[in-house]
Design a protein around this nucleic acid. Structure first.
Lengths: 193, 193, 193, 193
DNA sequence: TATGAATGAGTCTTCATTCAT
DNA sequence: AATGAATGAAGACTCATTCAT
């Protein structure tokens, strides 16, 4: 596949991603994608066999997009600061009004139960969990955080985020609800000022 | 609508519920229902206008099904016992291998954002939340539980459950994971033996 | 068929007539009629086999409704007055905004070409034509009208009315258009003042 | 849309036109068209969204078909001759046994009241009316016709034709009836020999 | 007579997918 | 590589008509 083809493939992926964000997984059709791309009916099939194939390619490319969380951390930040930053980012994602891929991803995994390593949700979760755990560990060592079970605390926070996210997507939640939940968990981690 | 019709309607609801459990919301068609019911093409349309209408009728009937959590509580149970029972019930739901309506409900609300009072997910969540909060309050008064913010603790537990549930439905989680999460939260509530 | 049945039959006819006026012939279904009548599905079939049968019964009952044009004529009216009255009546029908059976009748005869005596449109036309012809004849004898071919003049006027009616039903015409047409024809009949 | 597509589109239009002529507007289904065209179920939908859309395309193409009435007029024809030719053409249309689009057009406008410029019936009528009016005017100037109100005479004739046409389509009329009507109107226009 | 549940044929419409060019 | 016309399966929905009660 030449460079031109790769560009085309990426072009389709980009357009399709938007559609999945807006319409979710099950309501997105190849027709939608073809029309949005403005290329021929057969053109999309040259690169992707069907909606599932296309969506999986999007998931793959999502995985490789490093969120570069690290980039946002100032040099002299305390562990509390970094944790706050991490949490703020999650909060932003949860409350975002912009259509995100979340819903489509959930739908995809409802239809395609995959427990193995290729599960994007698991990987994404585990990645965040790992970052969080390391962070808390270091904060504990440093004395900024209580001497708690870092893994368990990280895990608890992550599941709360997961719960808040699905709640936000299925019934809507207020910012204050998110804040309260975060506050509650954080109290158990950060020694009060 | 005569008694016979009500029976038929309920019959359809029952069959359709099974299908929604197995296939989720978006993959269920009126054809599926018609065929599973073993009635004529137009037969289901006599009672329900379309898949959405049918699903909403199912949600309504779910709402009225009292879970009667209270029935399972022995007379002489301590608050810790009751809480344990509550948590056990949730755990069972989360880990259940039987297809449940959960996925279909999520899908339905992905497609139909309803923030008002009629939101089944919200109502269901709030109901459990209320029960849990009252329980913790009483446990605190009784001295069985730490003197914590009952509402916040209940809410934290509920979101963890929500997170565990969606995780279970999209990637699968082990019983030990659920146990660990529950344990972590419970430690903050129940004074250790 | 008892009196009660006849009442029911007439009740259905009345309701159905309204529907045909509003929806025309081809867009009216037995379902419409059943629902509008508020009686059982089978109930209508007891009296009428299908839409066509029902419509034909309506046409029959229309035929027997004497328009009693004569009733509206004052004792001392001149032939010109009577003609003017006749024409005014036709004009009213043509311009009426109230949904009339006209469209349904046209549609019925598009589908069911009937050239014999039972053709409602023909009978209705011929009836009016006869009245008009007699009227003109008498007016001529009386010296009020020009000495023209009464039959031909009557026929011309009737076809103009027919043309105006179908024009009104398919594209709308203004009152002034109708007036102009009537004026033109009348000039050839009535000796000017 | 390529040339091939345009051909296909025109092919469908042609076939569909025949069906509309034979079955009228309301009794024609997309299925009829699909089957008559010998193409696949979805094939027609590639070009037309539904029956209405298809019929409107036919009306458009009718509009552009110049009747080229002028072509039939011999060089040395008198105005009386031309008028006679015009009238003969109309008579032919009225009495034609070949199924024509007329009925479908009437039906279409019964269902779709359109008073604006896009009304085919109005345009068609006005076009003929204009030709007729000009013809009579010139005949008057030339001394062949009586010095009458050309516009009114033309209009009278057109409505008589309209009346005859709908009469022909709903109950049938004899050639002699048409002749008599034409005769009557013509007497008022053409100075007798 | 009257009811209204049930049937099933008929139509519309959408899309995934193929394939000749 | 790319096109886009064509296919046909799938599903939604409506109604005329019947029939057991």
């Amino acid at each position: 596949m030449g460079e031109k083809s790769i560009n085309k493939k990426n072009f389709i992926l980009e357009i399709a991603r938007d559609i999945f964000c807006k319409k979710g997984y099950s309501r997105t059709t190849m027709k939608d994608v073809v029309e949005a791309c403005g290329i021929s009916r057969g053109g999309v099939y040259l690169y992707f066999d069907n909606v599932k194939d296309l969506f999986e390619a999007i998931l793959d490319s999502e995985s490789s997009k490093d969120e570069d969380f690290g980039d946002k951390i100032p040099e002299d930040a305390s562990y509390s600061d970094v944790l706050a930053l991490f949490v703020k980012e999650k909060k932003k994602q949860i409350l975002s009004k912009k259509p995100s891929l979340d819903v489509a991803i959930y739908e995809y995994y409802f239809e395609n139960k995959i427990s193995g390593k290729k599960n994007f949700i698991r990987n994404d979760f585990d990645m965040s969990l790992y970052v969080l755990e390391e962070l808390i560990k270091e904060g504990i060592e440093n004395g900024e955080f209580y001497d708690i079970d870092a893994k368990a605390a990280a895990s608890n926070l992550m599941y709360v985020f997961e719960g808040l996210k699905i709640a936000a997507r299925t019934r809507g939640i207020s910012e204050s609800t998110v804040d309260e939940e975060i506050m509650y968990v954080m109290q158990g981690i950060i020694a009060e000022d």
